[in-house]
Design a protein around this nucleic acid. Structure first.
Lengths: 100, 100
DNA sequence: TCATCAATTAGATGGTTGTCGAAATGTCAA
DNA sequence: TTGACATTTCGACAACCATCTAATTGATGA
């Protein structure tokens, strides 16, 4: 059978689960994540800045939270930053919550 | 086919989604919810008090948060309170998040 | 080189929240 | 009625956090 796990590909550590829950709890962060996930190609920092009425500093803070929770993958190129949603991590979080 | 909706039974209002995300973000509340959900019959306030090293006042506060998020159903009988996990609401929250 | 621009970091601030002890409420049995 | 008990409410406090402005870093083009 398909190598090991029955249907869920990933297991998250306790600590990461808490980070994810906290990351998702802030509405602004949720919106940012949503926008990143809206396109399979992700979104750039500037893209998001155009949609969210907060300072660049605040955005940067939120990106850090999302990244350290493992919810986004960051690619920096020159002065630009590009983000992609890590659907595998989100899926693993949902799977975990579903087992309650 | 099984009456009506295709696979997700419930739609949650924006506001409730935020309350749920916030409720789940606190580790203590998560543990409480977990304990309530562990038995199909739910758990009493006293049950939970025996497992969580916090004051009754704090517990009461958390119950209120969980209830107003719609994650638990409360039944009071005399001096006792009994809680059950609302799996339909949790499910609806997960379905919503999965659509990101 | 120098000015400009994208993004991050530093530091401050106001608001939120998890927690407690004490008091209040309500229930039940003696 | 009275006392014990379960739970909630109140008021306070410390920690956390989203947010800002200002300063910094780093890259790019003129």
């Amino acid at each position: 059978m398909a190598q090991g796990k029955s249907h869920s590909g990933k297991r998250l550590a306790e600590k990461q689960l808490k980070l994810i829950a906290k990351a998702l709890a802030d509405p602004r962060r949720y919106e940012i994540l949503r926008q990143i996930g809206a396109q399979e190609s992700g979104a750039s920092c500037t893209d998001i800045r155009e949609c969210q009425p907060v300072s660049a500093a605040t955005l940067s803070h939120h990106f850090k939270e999302l990244e350290s929770a493992g919810l986004i993958k960051v690619a920096r190129q020159g002065k630009f930053a590009h983000f992609k949603l890590r659907r595998d991590v989100l899926r693993a979080y949902l799977d975990h919550l579903a087992k309650i």
